[in-house]
């Protein structure tokens, strides 16, 4: 690991000042991704600004939403009573991610800011436009089994690895950000980017901006929800595909629906057209099949990952059936 200087400020202002002044500085919270990347030589910050002393751990119910501080641990959020009561989908998604040890370290802010696990990004000797713009995409014609089927560009076909983020986008969360220009709020849907011609930029944060927390608006998705993660082993692996499904069923009719996928794109992939195909329809397998067909329209795979298209369709069907069956 390269050397760096280390700071531990006690206010958010001092933290963003420390970062703004130094082009090669990084915030560190749980460290479960950044330290790994530093060991691999993928990232080599000259300064680490440890934000763990900032007061950003709180999980609290506010009028109209649930506020979760950026430093709340993945394990604490997944077990929190307010979260399981108001947004059980988020709890399920968090529990599907990583291992118990990593969830005890990883924070909500860090989870959304984690980098892709694309092998080409992670190996400095291989080409990668995200790590080294202009060096090419090794995955495009390489080993691309884990890669994107939606929203990719010929510069980058990496996927975002978070499970938590899939639930967040389905639940219409907002990201609260503080930076040199003050506070702003970014809809979760707009937080992560598609790769386009600038895959080196994962998200819409600007230099020196710090994620302070998220707010999830109150909603009706407290019972018929499911997070299905399909992976190479039963636990502790990144998703091949994952599905966050949330239904509000009244009688036999779907009053409202949310659907998002992970493991398929450079950002959490919300399926708005499929949601529209569910709303107002009876909660039957036929309805779910139609939604799954619509969801996978426009998907395009590569040599080794085209299996994700039928797998995605089946996973959506399965997730919706499981969500609908919950009592």
């Amino acid at each position: 690991m390269r050397q760096f200087t280390y700071l531990r400020p006690s206010t958010s202002k001092a933290a963003i000042d420390a970062l703004s002044k130094d082009p090669n500085a990084q915030f560190i919270a749980g460290g479960t991704n950044l330290i790994d990347l530093m060991k691999k030589g993928v990232m080599a910050p000259e300064k680490l600004v440890d934000i763990n002393n900032l007061p950003l751990k709180e999980i609290k119910k506010q009028t109209g939403n649930l506020h979760i501080g950026a430093l709340a641990l993945n394990s604490d959020v997944s077990e929190n009573k307010l979260v399981t009561q108001y947004h059980p989908l988020l709890s399920l998604a968090l529990k599907a991610g990583a291992s118990a040890q990593l969830r005890n370290m990883a924070t909500v802010g860090g989870n959304m800011l984690q980098r892709t696990r694309c092998f080409y990004f992670y190996e400095p000797s291989l080409p990668c436009n995200k790590r080294e713009p202009g060096s090419g995409c090794g995955a495009l014609e390489g080993v691309n089994r884990m890669h994107a089927i939606f929203g990719w560009s010929d510069k980058c076909i990496a996927v975002h690895p978070s499970d938590m983020a899939i639930a967040m986008v389905a639940l219409d969360a907002s990201v609260l950000v503080y930076g040199p220009k003050g506070n702003r709020r970014i809809p979760f849907q707009d937080f992560h980017r598609l790769p386009g011609d600038t895959p080196e930029k994962d998200n819409s944060l600007e230099k020196g901006e710090l994620v302070m927390g998220v707010e999830i608006p109150d909603g009706p998705f407290t019972k018929n929800v499911h997070y299905l993660k399909v992976r190479d082993r039963a636990s502790y692996a990144f998703a091949l595909v994952s599905v966050a499904a949330a239904l509000n069923i009244s009688g036999k009719t779907i009053k409202d629906a949310r659907l998002a996928m992970g493991g398929v794109a450079h950002k959490p992939w919300r399926l708005l057209d499929a949601e529209k195909a569910l709303i107002g329809k009876p909660a039957t397998e036929e309805t779910f099949k139609q939604a799954a067909d619509i969801a996978m329209r426009g998907a395009k795979g590569f040599k080794y990952n085209s299996f994700k298209i039928p797998m995605g369709k089946n996973a959506i069907l399965d997730a919706l059936k499981t969500a609908a069956a919950k009592v």
């Binding site: 531990r8 560190i28 749980g30 460290g31 330290i35 440890d50 990593l102 005890n104 370290m105």
Partner: peptide, 15 residues
């Protein structure tokens, strides 16, 4: 009291 991976944290962060 909480289990973590000691390889993925800096000692200085555990002050």
């Amino acid at each position: 009291g909480n289990r973590i991976n000691s390889c993925m944290t800096l000692a200085v962060m555990q002050e």
